[in-house]
Computed example of a mutant assay.
Amino acid sequence: MFGRLRAWSRRHSKLVDALVVSPLVLFCLLTLDVYKSGPPFGRYIGIPATLVLSAALITPLLWRRNRPREVFAVVALVCFAQWVADVTLLPADFAVMIAMYGVAARCTARWAVAAGLVAEFGLLLAVLRWDFSQLDAFPSMSVFVIAIWLAGIYANTRRRYVESLVERAERAERERDQQARIAAAAERARIARELHDVVAHNVSVMVVQADGAGFAIDSDPEQARRAVQAISTTGRQALAEMRRLVGVLRQDAAGGEEYAPQPGVAQLGDLVRQVSDSGLPIGFTVSGTPCALPEGEQLAIYRIVQEALTNTLKHGGPGVRAEVDVHYGRGEIVLRVADDGRGASAPWVEGGHGLVGMRERASMYGGTVEAAPRTGGGFQVVARIPVGVAA
């Protein structure tokens, strides 16, 4: 409710300012006849002139919200002209206090102090002109001016505090939205990497098997049949993994739907056998003492080896042989996938998605990937991923 009221007051600022000064206008109208018998000090200028002077003092207050310094300057000048002309004090002179409050409540400390000093100086001038016998009244009247000035300072401080709270809340909301966008982008990048690895690897295996079946379909039908079966198995595996990945994006996925577990280090042997069955001879060795690894890190290791073997299938050429070595060292796991294929002569693209994906996966766990042609022929991928305390 308070928030709605504040928003309404901002939309109708002129109306609110008019309502604020309306009691002063009413008081000025009710006291028009008070000075007919003679003012206590100064000279009386009649009702028409009093109305004009009161309007000149009060009307600028309608703009005090947007232009507090200019409004205070205008009101102070009108009051000074009134003092010079020796016109008696009017109820409308209280507009100086309202304008001073506006400066203290909406401007910087420097302007607030300046407005307070001007108001105090104006009070001193009034006392010196019209109340010489009672200069001791200045301190008590000055307390009233200072009280209004302090009220404006308090309002200014409170307004700035509320604005800072609103700004912090808006900034927190923006940061939360930004974090959500970053998380969504990271999830999309992760799924893109997974899809790339799944599709590139399995399609490469299927292409190799299909080529083999095409060559052997006349000379060795049994081998061609096994190749076709391997293609079928690989295709089903690719579909299952893609279904699992795409299922992550489904907003209305059934709660009881289950997905296959993510592949890890334990599935490296199956991966090597699958690629070997496609016609790529692979030597697979594991050295060192295996240690427990998080599922995410195991998936990164599996995908790096899978991508390296996929590149061997695509770029190694005929008669290529590969070696996969997994070494559990002190504080790190070293993955080495090497082949004796075409190496530097292969159409390898340094900025390709495969190498980028391997490096991104390793960097997520503080690791590095080096990929380059081997001396004497072939290609090699070496990944170092810290584990345990080193990670």
Rank of each mutant, 00 (worst) to 15 (best):
His196Phe: 05
Thr375Cys: 08
Cys79Arg: 15
Leu124Glu: 12
Leu271Thr: 01
Ala105Leu: 05
Ala155Gly: 09
His327Asn: 14
Ile153Tyr: 13
His196Asn: 11
Val208Leu: 10
Val52Pro: 02
Arg330Met: 12
Arg4Asn: 11
Ser278Leu: 00
Phe121Pro: 10
Gly152Glu: 08
Trp149Gln: 09
Gln223Ala: 15
Asp197Phe: 10
Ala372Gly: 09
Lys14Ser: 14
Ala115Phe: 02
Ala192Pro: 05
Cys291Thr: 11
Ile45Pro: 02
Arg176His: 11
Ala185Gly: 05
Glu360Ala: 10
Ser133Val: 09
Cys107Thr: 14
Leu32Glu: 07
Gly351Gln: 12
Thr289Asn: 12
Arg10Lys: 11
Tyr328Leu: 01
Ile282Met: 03
Leu5Trp: 09
Cys79Phe: 12
Ala227Glu: 14
Ala240Trp: 00
Ile304Ala: 01
Arg168Pro: 07
Val272Trp: 00
Asp252Lys: 07
Ile153Pro: 06
Cys28Phe: 11
Leu335Glu: 02
Ala292Val: 15
Thr285Lys: 15
Ala73Asn: 09
Asp340Arg: 04
Arg336Lys: 15
Gly354Arg: 06
Pro139Phe: 02
Ala213Tyr: 08
Arg273Pro: 03
Glu120Lys: 11
Cys79Pro: 02
Val21Ala: 10
Cys28Val: 13
Pro48Thr: 07
Glu167Val: 07
Gly366Lys: 03
